[in-house]
Simulated scan of single mutants.
Amino acid sequence: MPGFAGLLGAAASVLGLLLLARYNLWRWPRARALPRILMYHRVLPAVTGQGITMNRSRFAWQMDQLARRGARFVTVSELLAAQDPRQMVAITFDDGYADNYQYAWPILRAHGAPATIYLAPEMSGIERLTPAMIREMAASGVEFGAHTMTHIHLPSTDDAQALAEIQASKAAVESLTGQPCRSFAYPYGKFTDRHVQMVRAAGFSSAVTTKKQIKSAEALRAAPLELPRLSMVGQMNRFEFWLTITRGRYRV
């Protein structure tokens, strides 16, 4: 019969295989100097964190960790325009929830992190940022991008309506902020080559996706209308956060 040491070794091997099967430990870590674009949606207090909703204390811890790693916080447009993008991190929020102002922004300000928020100005069923909130944040360096008017699913929408939503959202954001709207986010992360062309024709210089990758600044600039982002979900624990920041995603 195998001894205790043998059983312990076998158990460790099984545990290691389970971790490899569940997590992206097998992926080689990406260089810390490479830029990262992170995707958030909501930040709320007193929640355990599920789906797109991040607990406020967990969000604060994540920002602290990024700062300790030497993150240089920038907007998406600043990242693409930077001559030296080493260790730049762009924090992004989709949809335009009011809690971005109430709970996330104070934490971002403490770290000098401007963030980029993608607004769907007529999205139903959410408590949206008010025009006053948007103006205040924009005046303090927050970049506001567009996310269509009503958060439509572009691939299942006819081209005329899709283009109209893309164009109208750009104009609406510019009206709300009094500043140029340069960046776009594809709702649900769903799009086709036709929608990339629509976004380009509408005058956007960048667009973010939900592709979970860490790429070099050169690769980002080569395809500025299909930028990948690291998905930050509410239930993410500290180990999973570390995997995402270093590998691009924590799940296999």
Rank of each mutant, 00 (worst) to 15 (best):
D64E: 15
G141K: 07
Y97D: 13
I52D: 07
A90Q: 04
L38A: 02
R86D: 09
I107H: 11
R32I: 05
Q62M: 15
W26H: 15
D94G: 07
A115P: 01
F144N: 10
R128G: 03
V89L: 02
F73G: 06
G125R: 00
G112P: 13
P85F: 03
P131K: 03
G125V: 00
T116S: 14
A81E: 09
L119H: 06
V142D: 11
R30I: 09
I126G: 00
T92V: 13
Q62V: 10
D84W: 01
V142H: 07
A90I: 11
T148V: 02
T130G: 07
T92F: 10
I134R: 02
A139P: 08
L79I: 05
E136R: 15
A115E: 03
A132V: 09
G145F: 01
Q83N: 12
I152D: 02
V47N: 11
D158G: 01
R32W: 09
I117W: 02
F93T: 06
Q83V: 04
S77F: 03
S77T: 12
P29F: 14
I117M: 08
R27N: 13
M133F: 07
L38H: 00
V142C: 15
D158Y: 01
V43D: 00
M54G: 04
D94S: 04
M63D: 12
Y101I: 04
T157M: 04
V43H: 00
H151R: 02
D159L: 05
W105G: 05
A33N: 10
D64S: 13
R128K: 15
A90R: 04
R135S: 10
P85G: 03
Y97T: 12
A60R: 13
R109F: 06
R68H: 09
W61M: 15
I107E: 15
D94K: 05
S57M: 11
R86I: 02
N100T: 12
L44G: 00
D84S: 08
V47C: 13
D94V: 05
V47P: 02
S57V: 11
